[in-house]
Amino acid sequence: MSEALGDPHSDALARPPATPRAHGEPVGEAVLRAEPADFQVDEIMVVEPEGEGEHLWLEIEKTDWNTEDVALWLARNAGLHRLSVGYSGLKDRRAVTRQWFSLHLPGKPDPEFQWPPGLRSLRAARHRRKLNRGTHRGNTFRLRLRELAADQDALAARLERIAAEGVPNYFGEQRFGRDGANWTRGRAWLLGGEAPRKRPLRNFWLSGVRSGLFNAVLAERVRRDVWHRLLDGDLLQPDGSRGLFSADDDHDAAARVAAGTVHPTAPLPGRMGMASSGACRQLEDTVLADHVALVEALADLGLDAERRATRLPVSALQWQCVGDTLELTFRLPTGAFATAVLAELLTTRVPSANRG
């Protein structure tokens, strides 16, 4: 039942949309994040500091800290407003991650920090510009999965398929908060409920709702086995680019999609923006008919419509099994989730003490 036609608080719509797998059922199970070092992430930067300027760039290794808390700690201990601290992307908390931050220090010397447990400065250099969101090209992941129970041949075959075909580019559960709260509360707000009192919550809720709507469209493409295939009227995105073009304008579109040089996209709803057509538009309209009120509310708030690739290429994928431990290394583009890769491989569980 759609929000436009029925109960907007229906239990069927209260949870983030389900994300069916593209490559079949998991080939085994394992424990993820038994300790922070089991989940390591390094930013792949497009730009690195030049050595001079008003902004101090710091490459920081953080363990069991989330990115925003590091930014707040830096601002407080450098005597700066929070907005004077920049970073490129959000990183997992229960992990060891290495990422860059910038501090705006016009006419000021470099602060002398007394680093707390879990934070370590790796490099420091000046630059002329603030580090803005989305500056990095991607991330390298090094994962260790423990207590592995899987057939080795099936595991290797699935990993080879993932390396060759990629995986559906779902937003991971981190985007939706604990127990899907960002989707649940954001949806309730947009359908007439209580608004968030703090701006960061507003952003998290809006992001959670748009991500859920994208996942719903992608899930339908997975069910129809067209998440990595061309549909008439698709809007396509070149690999490694944010640009868009209509498949109808390119006679070689199907071959380019099959080769992986361009990818189909699905909507992050908002106002205006490029619109798909044909079979692609029909699929998207069918899915979003269950969420008409949400789509209209997002447009009314002034969010611009965007598109996101439906296929996630997994680069430089390597693996080895040591006893009952699987070690994985791979690269993903900016904005992608390692959990989307793992979901196509194994059923993972996180020790209850490490959730959140």
Rank of each mutant, 00 (worst) to 15 (best):
179 D>V: 01
204 F>G: 01
229 R>I: 03
172 G>K: 08
161 R>Y: 00
224 R>F: 00
201 L>M: 07
211 S>R: 01
169 N>V: 07
216 A>R: 03
210 R>T: 01
178 R>F: 10
193 G>L: 14
129 R>P: 05
143 L>F: 13
196 P>V: 02
189 W>A: 04
181 A>C: 12
165 E>Y: 13
213 L>D: 05
198 K>S: 09
121 S>F: 01
190 L>R: 08
146 R>A: 13
140 T>I: 11
203 N>E: 03
178 R>V: 10
116 P>G: 05
146 R>C: 14
197 R>I: 00
216 A>T: 02
134 G>K: 10
202 R>G: 07
151 D>R: 05
172 G>S: 11
112 E>V: 06
115 W>C: 15
116 P>L: 10
118 G>N: 05
193 G>C: 13
208 G>N: 15
227 W>H: 11
178 R>N: 10
147 E>V: 00
115 W>M: 15
112 E>R: 09
228 H>T: 04
170 Y>H: 14
159 L>K: 15
209 V>P: 03
222 V>G: 11
187 R>H: 07
125 A>P: 09
206 L>K: 09
202 R>F: 13
181 A>Q: 12
184 T>E: 15
211 S>I: 00
123 R>A: 13
182 N>F: 00
228 H>N: 11
191 L>H: 02
216 A>D: 05
158 R>M: 04
227 W>P: 13
226 V>G: 02
117 P>N: 01
118 G>C: 05
195 A>E: 11
125 A>W: 06
220 E>V: 03
206 L>C: 14
184 T>Y: 10
163 A>R: 15
161 R>K: 10
173 E>I: 00
145 L>S: 11
139 N>P: 11
198 K>M: 12
141 F>D: 06
147 E>K: 05
128 R>K: 10
160 E>C: 06
118 G>S: 03
113 F>S: 10
227 W>Y: 14
213 L>K: 08
192 G>M: 07
182 N>D: 07
183 W>E: 08
147 E>H: 07
171 F>C: 11
140 T>V: 15
144 R>I: 05
117 P>L: 02
186 G>K: 08
141 F>S: 04
193 G>R: 14
211 S>C: 02
209 V>F: 01
217 V>A: 07
176 F>G: 14
210 R>N: 04
164 A>W: 00
159 L>M: 14
165 E>Q: 15
204 F>Q: 12
154 A>V: 07
177 G>I: 01
177 G>E: 07
200 P>N: 05
198 K>V: 13
157 A>N: 10
150 A>L: 11
145 L>Q: 14
165 E>V: 11
200 P>T: 07
207 S>C: 01
214 F>P: 06
222 V>R: 12
157 A>V: 10
